[in-house]
Design a binder for these strands. Sequence first.
RNA 1: GGGCCGCUAGCUCAUCGGGUAGAGCAGGGGACUUUUAAUCCCAAGGUGCCGGGUUCGAGCCCCGGGCGGCCUACCA
Length: 467
Amino acid sequence: MAEIPYRFVTDSRVEELITRHAGLEPGQETDHVVAIAGRLMLRRVQGKLAFATLDDGSGRIQLFAPSKTTPEFEQFCDLNLGDWVGITGVVMTTRRGELSVRVDSWVVLAEARRPFPDKWHGINDVDTRYRQRYVDLWVTPEARQTFLMRSRMMTLTRSFLEQRGFIEVETPIFHPIPGGANARPFTTHHNALDLDLYLRVAPELYLKRLTVAGFEKVFEIGRVFRNEGVSTRHNPEFTMLELYQAYADYHDIMSLVEELVEQLAVELTGSTVLTVADQELDVARPWRRATMIELIEESIGATLSLDMPLDELRTIAKQHEVQVKDTFGPGKLILEIYEKTTEGALWGPVFVTDYPAEVSPLSREHRDKPGMTERFEAILAGRELCNAFTELVDPEQQRSRFEDQAAQNAQGDDEAMMVDEDYIRALEYGLPPTGGLGIGMDRLAMLLTGASSIRDVVLFPTLRPEQ
RNA sequence: GGGCCGCUAGCUCAUCGGGUAGAGCAGGGGACUUUUAAUCCCAAGGUGCCGGGUUCGAGCCCCGGGCGGCCUACCA
């Protein structure tokens, strides 16, 4: 085999060539000489004339190679599917009208030493697709499309936030104290410091420290890690967008979420109507806003409140097959009833608002409803997309919420939070009224691409190792 | 964690009431100057996920294990 060059300069992408020469009649030869490179996807050798299909990632175009004009014609015909080649030649159309590049010179850029998957069926086995994503992405156009859309989604999200004055920051992934979400953390160890550390379950507490510091609008898009089971909606590491806006409350944040999602849908799909699992979801603003209590009442027809006797709540919970524990207060019972009876039936888009303080250790108490907090989750296509609230700013209240959490942790709830003294110290310097938001970007990508499994929007999902 | 299903050539898939496997594509050889998943001819390609058991004989039946999928549970 010929030497593999160290460099190959292209001047065109296939996508551009197709657009530029869209109207070309059959049998035309232009004076447009191009240099393109990509992977050989198909090959049709016909004696003294060879055709091939090149894929450069932007699209596919035919290569036209007559023996008379193609250098080293025999070797060109011996190329294997999957080989990378660099081509220079004129743009032309064949007798049948197929837009092609005539191979006036060519060079091998990489050999495919492993066999090409079935050129028509590609790879069907999802295990292989996830494990060998590098193969999946070039033989499965939908997979490529999904990840291109995800990339654009991230870019558009960043510019959406930057246009509104948010600055992007990066906070630690190693946390001495895990916090910001109720989730079991991964643990690790720093040798030189002889220090046990946790991989973050959320960046929340660091971002609010930055609000204390005087950054009015901050966001972070980053990986978080939760030591939980995997499913079509859960990958142990996933990408979270969190943002904090000083002087704002949860109503402002709801408006922001609506705007973001509507805009992404229009820019990425051209419509506010998305298709998920063969059902339509219209994300056009405004979205319905309803309290958790209202939605439960709609769903089960019973009246609930935090003030009613605990026994009555327990009875209702048991009627709906909620597994009740003695430690559950009224707030936890209401949340459990919501999750068991109501959440799964919601399609959305809907903002579910006003969560009990008992289950919302970082949210500020509702301005009118004692025992409730100003918190919401958005449900889209039956899935929870985000979690947001008017932030708890009072250090004393925060300490007491942390202590409740720590007590639950001590009782064996390894998802409950611990007391973060430094975070309380930060609050003591003064956190202004602040609205905060966390969005699972993988789930947002699922929504926008119509993917039914989170693994279809994560390039390399967590799997058991082979063998 | 529980239930159900799957695993056969590099890829996509067959076969059978238990009788030690077959095709297309890819890869190899040959024919072919306008093909489009090109076509045609030839040859090659297998630890039937792994390990036990039943049987004269197991890819197929039984048990255990592995990996994956779906559902469920868990999961802010």
